[in-house]
Computed example of a mutant assay.
Amino acid sequence: MSSAPAARPLASADTAARGLDLLLTAPRARTGWRVLPARVAAMCLVELQKLRHDRTELYTRAIQPALWLLIFGQTFTRIRVIPTGGIPYLDYLAPGIIAQSAMFIAIFYGIMIIWERDAGVLTKLLVTPTPRAALVTGKAFAAGVKALIQAVVVLLIATLLGVTLTWNPLRLLGVAAAVLLASAFFSCLSMTIAGIVLTRDRLMGIGQAITMPLFFGSNALYPVDVMPGWLRAVSAVNPLSYQVDALRGLLLGTPSHLPLDFLVLLVAALTGITAASCLLGRLAR
């Protein structure tokens, strides 16, 4: 009869001891396949935390796409000199401006990593157990999330201007995937260039030199059929063209090559992550 009450204090003592062990013992580190996704998510969240302190970048970057749609789009809609397959030119232009604004955000992302190098942050990150590929991928997809916010702004402006866009949830998920993959590539391209030139001034000059050729060498403003032969060759190797083609197919329902578009964007993003990861150590020297 007396054994049952005596067992209760012993059980409670064991429970308290286990709780104390949990407090004194460090949690087990993630191992295996869970390491890379966890580190990528952590780096992405760190990058996005910066938006909480300064949102002016998002507001100021919305001005340029708004001007493209308001001035360039509406003017050429009235002129009707560019063949668009029977859709208004403003509708045709809107996906191209989404791609352009996302590229402009990502293409100068290398400046941030050079700033982190100069501030000593990058060196501290490289001595952690975090793989370099996870560092680069986290920064790349943080750029993609910023580009997604920009894409939402452009979609709202286009809707206010009367552009007919689809609101199918599955198609919008495809739009988000295209924006994320393309932004990841262009941000990694910027970080790769940063690992080569090593200074902000040089990176700024090269970034300004390649953004316009990438934009005008794509199908963002006009169809490939009206391009001269040499420009068609440039467009064929330009990832921006495949992003614009995917966005038009998803948002407007125009003929597109979605499997090829997403395959090219995925390969480009993986190639960019690999190149930027290889040069990250050189940037920190």
Score class of each variant (00 low, 15 high):
S2L: 14
S3W: 12
S3E: 14
A4M: 12
P5A: 11
A6G: 09
A13S: 11
T15E: 08
T15Y: 06
D21E: 11
L22F: 04
T25M: 05
T25L: 07
T31P: 04
G32D: 06
W33F: 10
V40M: 08
C44D: 03
V46I: 13
H53Y: 10
H53L: 09
E57A: 13
Y59R: 10
T60K: 04
T60D: 02
L70T: 08
F72L: 15
Q74F: 06
F76A: 04
I79C: 03
P83E: 08
G85K: 01
G86I: 01
P88W: 02
Y92C: 01
I98E: 00
I98W: 01
M103V: 03
I105F: 02
F108K: 01
G110R: 00
I113R: 00
W115K: 02
R117I: 00
D118M: 01
V121K: 02
V127Y: 01
P129T: 00
L135Y: 00
L135P: 00
K139G: 02
A147K: 03
I149G: 08
I157N: 03
A158C: 11
L160W: 14
V163T: 12
T164L: 13
L165H: 05
W167D: 12
L180G: 10
L181A: 13
F185S: 11
F186E: 10
C188S: 15
C188E: 14
S190I: 11
T192A: 14
I193A: 14
I196S: 07
L198S: 07
T199A: 09
R200D: 08
D201L: 12
R202K: 14
G205C: 12
G217V: 11
S218Q: 06
S218N: 11
A220W: 04
Y222T: 05
P223T: 03
D225Y: 11
P228G: 09
W230Q: 06
V237P: 02
L240Q: 04
Y242F: 06
Q243S: 09
G249E: 06
L252H: 06
T254S: 12
H257K: 09
L258F: 13
P259E: 13
L260P: 12
L265V: 13
S277H: 15
S277W: 14
C278K: 15
L279Y: 09
L279W: 09
R285G: 15
